[in-house]
């Protein structure tokens, strides 16, 4: 049963409130817990005329807070990316990384680490996300080039899925090779980074990811109607006035940018983009306008929860977040699959 619109609006508002709650929990708890009054004092110290922040307050302002915000943004990116890819491929088992984007972005960043170690340059503000984007674009383009049919030059969905699988495997092995030949410090960061982590969060990272996430989601929302039309097939969508090839390129471009930029700062985080649209569809149907907004909120919420677990499970040490998302995501995904009402 698909539910009417009124429920969806209520659902989105509820999701928004849950997101705020999780954000509150995620800034409060961690390696060190901050009391509400400590958080208030730390925030107050930002205003002119207040005393300089203490060490604890600086930890909160420069580590905890940007990390929590970055987590929201990356989760939103992965959620929206998942929704976009599933709508485009008309298939509920698709992930943003599917068309090679994630592994390409990971490879771009890994190569950057290794070359940085050899030629002695470090990651600056834009160079790492740029390297990741470049990797993401190259791998995505590679997938489309290889998946293009010889007869009519159009890429069939099945061929894309399979080619994506192969290209992903190629790039992951390339990353393995890089970490094998790399000298110790880089190798460690590649390993940690390929499992996904938010420990490198900074306000710089927040700025960059905020730009790509918000711009990506807003543009995607403008194409929600066309993505809905695509649900009844490419031919039918064409009859409804949709330029299907143009739509494909726009949606893929949005996906490449938001996923690659997020991957650049946090590494490969799987299952968020897969599960979020699933849950939302079960709650409120498949309308893409609702799904895009909802997947930004739910993606942010779920990734924040995962990060909270990653920080608290072995406190004061922390787990790579990718391990948490996979450990929590796989059983959830499997149970969703068993109750699914989709036909693959």
């Amino acid at each position: 049963m698909t539910r009417p619109h009124a429920n969806r609006a209520a659902l989105l508002i509820a999701l928004g409130l849950i997101t705020l709650l999780v954000l509150a929990a995620s800034i409060r708890y961690g390696a060190i817990d901050f009391s509400v009054s400590a958080i208030a004092r730390a925030l107050a110290s930002l205003f002119p005329g207040q005393p300089e922040p203490t060490l604890d307050q600086r930890i909160f302002l420069e580590l905890r807070l940007p990390r929590a915000v970055l987590c929201l943004l990356v989760g939103a990116s992965l959620g929206v990316g998942g929704t976009l890819m599933q709508a485009l491929f008309r298939n509920p088992i698709v992930e943003p990384g599917l068309v090679g984007t994630s592994s390409g972005a990971a490879f771009g960043s890994a190569l950057f680490f290794v070359l940085g170690g050899v030629f002695h340059f470090g990651a600056s503000l834009w160079s790492l996300p740029l390297a990741a984007c470049l990797g993401g674009v190259i791998s995505t383009y590679l997938v489309f080039l290889l998946a293009r049919s010889r007869e009519d030059g159009r890429a069939s969905i099945v061929l894309l899925l399979l080619t994506g699988l192969a290209v992903n495997a190629l790039f992951m092995s390339a990353i393995g090779f890089l970490s094998y030949i790399a000298r110790d410090p880089q190798a460690r960061s590649i390993t940690f980074w390929s499992l996904g982590t938010l420990s490198g969060a900074s306000w710089r990272a927040v700025e960059i990811v905020a730009i790509s996430t918000i711009a990506g989601a807003v543009i995607a929302l403008r194409y929600a109607k066309q993505l809905n039309a695509l649900m009844i097939g490419e031919e039918e969508a064409t009859y409804l006035g949709v330029n299907v090839n143009r739509l494909k390129w726009i949606i893929l471009s949005i996906n490449v940018v938001i996923v690659a930029v997020a991957t650049a700062f946090t590494g490969v985080i799987s299952f968020v983009g897969l599960i979020v649209p699933h849950i939302l569809r079960m709650l409120g149907g498949a309308n893409n306008r609702y799904l895009i907004i909802g997947s930004a909120l739910l993606g942010a919420t779920l990734l924040s929860l995962a990060d909270l677990i990653a920080r608290l499970a072995l406190r004061p040490a922390e787990l790579p977040i990718g391990i948490v998302t996979s450990a929590v995501g796989v059983p959830v995904f499997l149970s969703l699959l068993r109750r699914r009402q989709y036909v693959f």
Binding site: P92, A229, M231, G285, A286, Q341
Partner: peptide, 17 residues
């Protein structure tokens, strides 16, 4: 064929897109 669960009203509404 519709790829995802959509209500009948939503499918008919597509005509107005």
């Amino acid at each position: 064929d519709v790829a995802f669960p959509l209500s009948v009203r939503e499918v008919v509404m597509m005509g107005r897109y």
